[in-house]
Design a binder for these strands. Structure first.
Lengths: 327, 327
DNA sequence: CTGAAAGCGCTAACAG
DNA sequence: CTGTTAGCGCTTTCAG
């Protein structure tokens, strides 16, 4: 390039010691003029070299829950100079599979996955070869691996107990597709609280398959149109809550409005006075990243399973009493 | 590996023609057993080979506006098998610069940037060498390049005109740091509408430097505590609007609540009846990706500048009349 | 249909 | 302090 060997260029540009100030300077200016940059791909191709990317597979980057996770991961790994490759699976197992394969072909240093349903044993071979995988939000199927979860059952139980304590019995549940583990866990938690209280009326008010706000809105309307409508609603994710709020927004102020508790907080949750089961997506992403980094650093301990707490935030909607309680 | 040459393996695994069914089959099973995968890094290192990653630099992945952009970009590039490397700049020009350099070292196929302020001519050398760069949301400084913008001035003007038409004169403006082009454009649009209407009272109600909801909340409180408070508010981004809504939420229902229009829509915007200047972040990301892909495909036309429309969505908060208008 | 050789750009190891 | 060599894993080119 300017009379020096490639190795000297490498040393200078990487700020390694054992290069004279003068030579380094010359290399720097020459590189700047020629627009020369070190090629990270080549660097990472070398034998024994580790890649500096981390793969993240989430459901949908545009959902605040998942973008929060992504932000937490990014924040943590960037402190180590690692970059984030993100992809949305749309909750499609086949897409998750092909994206996973793509990430591995790219030799990501670690793979963080919010798993959709499906068998995840297809990663076992790679894990044995040293691939770091951390699952988020939902446990993988047929696999023992590091995983960061929410206390889904506990949160749902807290929601149910809260509503029960205000005298509600006819409590409707609106949730996502039952295929998702989070959905099932939340439903199980809810169910256990209801059973403990000896309440059975709610079963007829269970609505699933609502994957977006629109569907949840329709569910809410049909529930409230029943001859004996529910006196309370438990919406099991952020978009389900959004749908319910759209219906309740214009509800007549005659005391007939159902109580509402939603899983996941909302950006304007405090403004609309919606009671929620709150948690911290960004911290969840951060923890997953920390776990992955520990594995990269050689942590060989048994698979870790972290369950993050949830908190009931009472803001009003969950504290409305039933209008005409039948028990 | 199993008696075949590397080239045959390459051919088989890439599904190239001119490999016998039988051989291909053998390679496939052997690869599966050994957990062998093609190395994309090596592939992309080859001379003339193009990388299959696209870099995206945004302010903060956790802000729905930017995660929407990211989603739009991802959706579009994934159709071509390209993956997204995302990084948050926190609106820090120095960080933007170092992240940019990092992306280039990784040989991203294209770089999409929401620029913070600063001189962006440092990318010119790389652009001349064929690097595809598309700017989003804000124009770069001192550079002529492809850029996808919002009609910031037009949107702000529409907000001002709307409030003016309802009789407001004392209109407060709450905005982000003036350093940001979007802020200045919106303010300029607002100002032009006010000037055309011959209104000057608003200048004393201008508040900037509110980069989050918390600061905007404080601004709103102090504004409303003035001896002659504003009768309307124009909040210039999503988080500023959120802050204002927190204050207005518990405002006495005596007709003294200020009108409110916010720039950017909010997830629960329809539930809280907030009037907004709405636009489509995901489409913006998609357009940027489309532009970048066209350049990659050889489009050599002059730099393209797309201005995306905004729409005023009247939901109630922007249609409140002033309590005791002074004009 | 299959294989051998070359080279992408980098850095570790080993000389000067 | 600086240079040489080798090899990471892939695919293009050219020969079988």
């Amino acid at each position: 390039m300017s009379g020096v060997s490639v190795k000297t260029v490498s040393r200078a540009l990487n700020g390694e010691p054992y290069v004279s100030q003068e030579t380094a300077q010359r290399v720097w200016t020459a590189a700047a003029q020629l627009g020369f940059r070190l090629n990270v791909l080549a660097r990472e191709l070398r034998s024994g070299a580790a890649s500096t990317t981390v793969g993240l597979l989430i459901g949908d980057l545009a959902n605040p829950f998942w973008s929060g996770i992504a932000r937490g991961v990014e924040r943590e790994i960037s402190r180590r100079g690692l970059r984030l490759i993100t992809a949305s699976t749309d909750e499609d197992p086949a897409l998750e599979w092909s994206l996973t394969k793509d990430m591995l072909d790219r030799r990501v240093r670690a793979l963080l996955v919010v798993p959709t349903t499906g068998d995840h044993s297809y990663l076992e071979a790679d894990r044995r070869q040293g691939l770091t995988v951390v699952y988020l939000d939902r446990p993988p199927s047929h696999v023992l691996a590091d995983v960061i979860l929410l206390d889904n059952a506990g949160g749902a139980r807290a929601a149910a107990d809260h509503l029960l304590s205000y005298g509600h019995r006819r409590i409707a549940v609106i949730g996502d597709v039952p295929r998702l583990n989070t959905h099932r866990e939340r439903l199980a938690g809810f169910r256990s609280a209801m059973e403990r209280a000896g309440v059975t009326e709610w079963e007829q008010y269970l609505r699933t398959e609502s994957h977006d706000a629109h569907a949840a809105e329709a569910d809410t309307r049909s529930l409230m149109a029943m001859s004996t409508p529910p006196t309370a609603l438990f919406t099991m994710n952020n978009w389900n809550t959004t749908g319910a709020l759209r219906v309740l927004k214009d509800w007549p102020n005659d005391g007939s409005a159902p109580a509402l508790i939603g899983f996941d907080d909302l950006d304007l949750g405090d403004v609309v006075n919606v009671s929620v089961i709150e948690h911290d997506p960004e911290e969840m992403g951060r923890l997953a990243a920390v776990t992955a980094l520990a594995r990269i650093d050689g942590d060989e301990g048994p698979p870790r399973s972290v369950v993050m707490p949830t908190h009931l935030v009472a803001r009003g909607s969950g504290e409305r009493p039933p209008r005409s309680s039948s028990s």
